[in-house]
Each structure stands twice: as C-alpha cells, then as structure tokens.
Design a protein around this nucleic acid. Structure first.
Lengths: 407, 407
DNA sequence: AGTCTAATTTTAAGTCGCAAACTAAGGTTC
DNA sequence: GAACCTTAGTTTGCGACTTAAAATTAGACT
C-alpha cells in the first residue's frame, strides 16, 4: 500500500534524477533556478550538478546577466552525451530513426516489410540500427539504447513479450530475437500507441499537463492514457484499448469479433465502410489514407459524405466523452493520421458531440487539441524510452534497470 | 515528471509509514518478518518500531516460537490508539459510525433527512459525531478524524468543495460548514463511490490486488478505479463516472440529459423502467430496492422479467468490458445493492457478456467478484480516510496533511 | 551448567541535505 | 578608481539517517 523507499542513497539518486529531468524538460537553467524549481537547497544543487557535469551528462551553456550581481551560468543536458534509436514496427514496414539526447534526428531509414514474421523483423531492426549509426557517423558505443514501438500489447518483464494479432504475432519475445540477431544495445519494447502518447507528452500537444488522454485514430483506434505524468499501463500493460469499447450496444460488427465497438464506427476502415453502405458503391481507390482524404474533400459537395462525417463526429464525441467521464483528464489530444484529418475539418463538431455526452463537471476541465506529430510519432516516442530510463536515474546508462515501468 | 523527494527526514517518515502500513494490513508481525517484508535492515526496523511503540501506535502482541532460537515478539497496530468516524451522506439520510483503529465498529447512528440542504446536514453530522462518541463512552480527544462520503464529486483543496446534483448541492464547502457547527476534528471529504471502493480494497473483495475496478450499481451507477493500489481521482477528482458513459449511441435518455448512458440501462431505475415499458404496467410498489428484488424473483416465472434481466446482464457485461479494455485491471468487484442482487442471480451471464465484449488478452487477466460490503460500505470506507492519513505518516495524527491525495 | 540457534539491539561507519558562512563576479557610487 | 552593493555559487560544520557487523538476549536441548 504505502510506497517503499529505503536507503539514504536512493535519496541521492532521486534528487539527481529530479535535477536531470528538470534540466531536460525546462531547457537551460542556472543552478539558482534549479534550486527554486526543485525545492532543493542551493548547496545540494551545486553538489549534485557538479557530479552531473563530471559525468558528462550536463554541460555549461553560456551565462546570462543578473541585474547587478554575478551572472548566472546556464546548464543544460549535453546532447552529445549519447544517442538513442527509435523504431516503429508498423503493419507494413519499419521505421528506424537515430537521435541525439535532445531528440534531434540525425539519421533515419524506412524498410517495407511484407511477411513480417518475427525473426526477419528482428534481424531487420538490428541491421537497420547499425545502418543509421553508420549513416550518422557516430561510434556505436554511444548508443544508449533502442526503443521499439510495436502494434500490439507488450507484457513487460525480464524480457518483453509481444502480442500483436494484426501482424500475426502471439507471445513473441522480441528482445531475445534482436539479441540473437546481434543487437547488444539496451532494448525497450512498448506498445506503439503508448510511445506515440509519450512523444506528444514530451514534445507535443501534451506538454505541461499531468492528466491527458491521447486518442489515436488511424486504421484502428487506440488511446494512451497519461495519469499524473506517467503512461498508464494497467495490470498487464494492455490498458487504453479504447477502440474496442462498446459504444453502440448490438451495433456494427468489429474485426475483433464483438458488436458495436468504437473502432467499427470511427476507425478509418469503419468510416469508409459506412460510407460505402450509405452510397451503395466504393469510393475511388488508392490506399486508405488517401481515400479518407478524398471523403473529407467530397463532403464539401456530397450530402452523403457530409452525413457520414457528421455521424463520425458524433460517435467520436461520444467515445471521447467516455474517456472524459472515466479518466477526468485535463486535456484530450487527438492524433493518428485519421484523427488529425478529421480534427482539422471537424473539431468543432467533435467537441460539441463530446459536450453532449460528457458530464458537465469533467467536461469543463478539458481542452481538446490536435496532436503535433504526424507519421514520426511512434519512432520519436520509442526513442524517448531510453532517454526516460537515463533521466530516471540509471547512473550507468548502458546498463539500465530492467524497465522504467518496474521502477 | 520525475517524482520529488528531498530531505533525509522524509526518508524516515517514509520508512515509518511503510512499517506501520505493513503492520496494519498484514496483521501481527515480528520485527524479523517486518524486516523481510519491507526490505529494511533489522537495525532500522528495530529503531523505527521502538519509536512507534513509544508513540503508542504499536503494541506487542504475544510471541511465537522460532525453531530453536529466541522467540519472535509479535507487533501490531494498537487498536486503542485512537478512534475514527465514518459518515455516509446519502440521498435520503446520513449514517454515522464510530470505529477503533482496527475498524471495529463501536457505535452507529442513522438519521433520516428530508430537505438535505447543506447547513442542516453539516449540523447533523457534527451533532451525530458527538452522539456516537458519547454512546461509545470514549473521550472525544481520541477521535483522530472524521471521514465523510458524499454522493457527488469532491474537489480536493485547502477546503473540499462538493458538487452533488442529486441532492442539490453545488459548490458546497462542507468542511467549513461542519467547523461552523462546532466540529473540530480533522475532516476528510470524499466521493461516496470512492470510499466504497476503498472499503472493498482494504477489507473486502479487493484485498491483495493492485489494479481493481469496483463497479457500483444502485439507483445510479458509478465506479471506483484503483490503480497501483491507490484510488484514481483524475485531474479534478471526478474520474470513474462509469454510469454516464455511452453504451448505446442514441439510445435511452438518461437523467443526466444524454442518450444511451449505461446508467439508463443497468441502474435500478433504468431496469425497472425498461421492465415497465416491456410489461405495459408497473410492478407492485414499495421502494426501489424491494421492487428490484421482486423483479428478480418474478424472473423465475415471468418471461418478460427474465428477458429484462437477461438484457440487463448483457448491457452490464458490455459496460464492464469497457472498464476491462480501458483500465486492464486484474480484478473487477461488483457492488452496490443492485449490483449485489443482480450478481447473486446472474453472475454467469454477466461474465459471459463481458467476455463477449472485451478483448481476449485483458479479459483473461481478470476475475470478477461480488463485493463483500452491503449498506455499510460508504461509512466504513469513509472511516478509512483518517486511518489512511495516519498510516501515510502524519506523525502528529491530530494535525494531518491537507489531504492524502496531495501527498 | 553449558551449548546452540535465532531474534533483537547496540555500535561504529559512511551518506546525505541543509543552514550559514564564504567566495566569485559583476555593477554602482562618489 | 576604490569602496560598496548585489546576486550566484561553493565550502564547512552539523544533525539525521540507514546499514553492516558485533554484541546481547531468550528460549530449547543436552
């Protein structure tokens, strides 16, 4: 029940982590400002930052005049301290991106992937990481870790186990496969929706808030729930399966086998299928993404298209209202390619539908915004995983704790 | 982002709290076992427990032989250290119960309440607390605090603000009113569903689990969400409004004004109304509670009644499945008077409906159980609030921190 | 009485953060 | 341009904490 911390040394780790995180997120700061922000005494800040500078994690970054006294020396996290890699394992391909510690992209690779059985994917990941490292011309030893976002649930443990029905993975020990393919970096495997959520929280539309739900709509529908600043995982890391919540009891069949799931109404496939049924014929081809774009454009002239989109906004609003009522967040971020497309043209209607279905009190607390990230969200979010582990206080970054989740 | 703890003294408080909580929840334990359970060294345990014994919070409770060595001395929380009061503010009356620290009931009072405007309720609470204290014959100074469960949302802050539309409260500063009526005890105000949840977590069907959703069905429908051992509140303490999540888009009107809320289908009122509509006439009168009981009995003979209950199980299962998909708990506890009544006769069907609507992976994690508490749940849970504050480390129990939530 | 085992307590050592005193680095005043 | 002010950051001394190891305590067994 009660939290559990013990030795006086954990205290040091804790304070070290607090200062490092503050520097990372709130930009260059002087020791003096750090002291104010962290609540630690100036003496301790001085002491701990000296250690951080010694370790090379933090560097001085110029100084700024104070009015009439000694100028403040600014400190910031050393972007060159090390590098991180983010991998987006998608249904049709993988994306591998290399960043410095400030999450500036240094190199990237895309690879299509037809069969997507686990072994080849693991090999491809391992070789692609080596590729981007070579492309950026950095020593491989500076890679602090590789974060991997996968399209399914991840059971965290000694070695992460991935269940991803949409690509036919069931109980895949991805970490072990990548190690077998020669990957020696610390690995962090996480559900793709959760890494997208983390990207929005760290650098996007979620910044500054502590209770946020990131609603993601693409071909499928998911959500990342952030409670009190951290991604919520639930008992076995599969929390946030918003797409398969029932919104219309006994309604449209969903690919998951149930009836009336939200995804069957507002997922890209669901939207197009409803349009198809309403219209009696298919929209002009292309991939899903461009077909949805075409539908949105068509809505300017076609009553049917407009009606389908209006209904979509209604269902989506009800779905968002469920999130609002259950989680009482301070902010909702709408993301995913379809979410961004719908949001750009229909945000007012979506908000109105949300208001109609949510309780007044929690609704009054929220602001609904569009996500800042496009197709890079998963990879960027995945790359934040090793950075997060570093910030949380793995003092030896190349040997991090089992997983940030555990700590 | 990062948690924030500072001085070496907090460490002591922390460890003190850990040991006290362990003793409270895991019964009498020897110092040796405490050391194992808490991970603290034997020396520290000895040191801290000495302090706890000195303060009167902990007493020795016999000893138990070890095989061949010095016998272990058992320690437990001193039930007589102080007393706590739990208050259940309901829609039709208030219930005030006095407990010792082991949550053994020592006295109780019920009062009907017709107008329920805030002032008189506050006075009634203050006088009832004095009544139960007198009835139990304990000195008033041993009252460590008064917990109050209210039927609405509570904004925690310097002074709790209550919004309870069903009894016409809007922005009521209950604490201040009780103080004005002469109540000098530390007060803890919390939403009634959340106190019920805490009662089940501490002493009922939630014991031992860390991720639980307690689904409460009475006249209305609510839920208490427990994540990682603590009651989840969200940004403004109104999380868990399960009753007003949309389950049937465009469906039955709900008293909240929206269409298709879960409450409109599985709340007692919703069930009875659906039966009325199906049957074309009312069920024989009485209060809601006995009418529902009558309906359940009638289902043995009446096809209509059976069908209404079957449908109820279906809707309820879908609603529970939404909780499972979103929160991924390890356990669902079904409570509230109507929830217990339905569960006693229909649990199989409810579980089956849940399976039909939930994703396989999270569904496989859960066990669905009935709550252990009946009408006392709110008051017992409310009484746990001051106890929780004591366990969390308010070293001077009569002057607790603003609210356990804040810490 | 002496010995064995296991549970606590005492002791000595090492860490930590903080308040206060102190140093650094620049501007202002006369 | 020397004395003084102001603000930033560092050093010092101290009290508080946990721990490992040594010492003590308390029964059981011989």
């Amino acid at each position: 029940m009660a939290p559990k911390r013990t030795t006086v040394r954990d205290l040091r780790r804790q304070n070290r982590a607090t200062l490092l995180s503050t520097l990372f997120f709130d930009g260059p700061l002087s020791r003096y400002e750090l002291s104010r922000l962290s609540g630690l005494s100036a003496a301790t800040v001085s002491n701990v930052t000296a250690e951080l500078v010694e370790d090379g994690l933090v560097v001085e970054a110029g100084s700024v005049d104070s009015d009439g006294g000694r100028p403040r020396v600014l400190l910031r996290v050393n972007p060159a301290f090390g590098h991180v890699v983010g991998v987006d394992v998608g249904e049709t391909g993988i994306k591998v991106e290399l960043f410095d510690l400030a999450l500036t992209q240094l190199a990237a690779r895309d690879h299509a992937l037809s069969p997507s059985s686990p072994g080849p994917v693991a090999s491809l990941i391992a070789s692609s990481v080596r590729e981007v490292v070579a492309a950026a011309g950095i020593p491989v030893s500076t890679v602090l870790g590789v974060g991997i976002g996968v399209p399914g649930t991840v059971e965290q443990g000694a070695s992460a186990v991935v269940h991803a029905p949409t690509i036919g993975w069931d109980g895949v020990r991805l970490e072990e496969l990548i190690r077998a393919a020669g990957g020696t970096w610390p690995l962090y495997v996480e559900n793709g929706a959760k890494t997208q959520g983390q990207a929005e929280m760290w650098f996007g539309a979620g910044r500054g808030a502590r209770h946020v739900v990131i609603a993601l709509i693409g071909s499928g529908v998911g959500a990342a729930v952030v409670t009190d600043g951290g991604v919520y995982r639930g008992a076995t890391s599969s929390a946030g399966e918003w797409g398969h919540t029932t919104i219309a009891y006994g309604g449209r069949p969903c690919r998951c086998g149930a009836l009336g799931c939200l995804e069957a109404y507002v997922g890209a496939e669901g939207i197009l299928d409803r349009y198809r049924k309403a219209r009696g014929r298919n929209l002009s081809g292309g991939d899903e993404q461009s077909t949805v774009a075409a539908l949105i454009t068509a809505a300017e002239h076609s009553r049917t298209a407009a009606r389908v989109l209006d209904e979509t906004a209604g269902y989506l609003g009800a779905g968002i209202a469920n999130l609002v009522n259950l989680f009482n967040p301070e902010r909702i971020v709408l993301g995913g390619w379809a979410g961004l497309a719908l949001g750009a043209h229909q945000l007012d209607r979506i908000v109105a539908a949300t208001r109609a279905h949510a309780l007044r009190h929690p609704f009054d607390q929220i602001s609904i915004r569009l996500g800042h990230f496009g197709p890079d969200a998963v990879a960027v979010g995945a790359a934040t995983l090793p950075v997060g582990a570093l910030l949380e206080g793995a003092s030896d970054p190349r040997k991090p704790a089992p997983h940030p989740n555990i700590a």
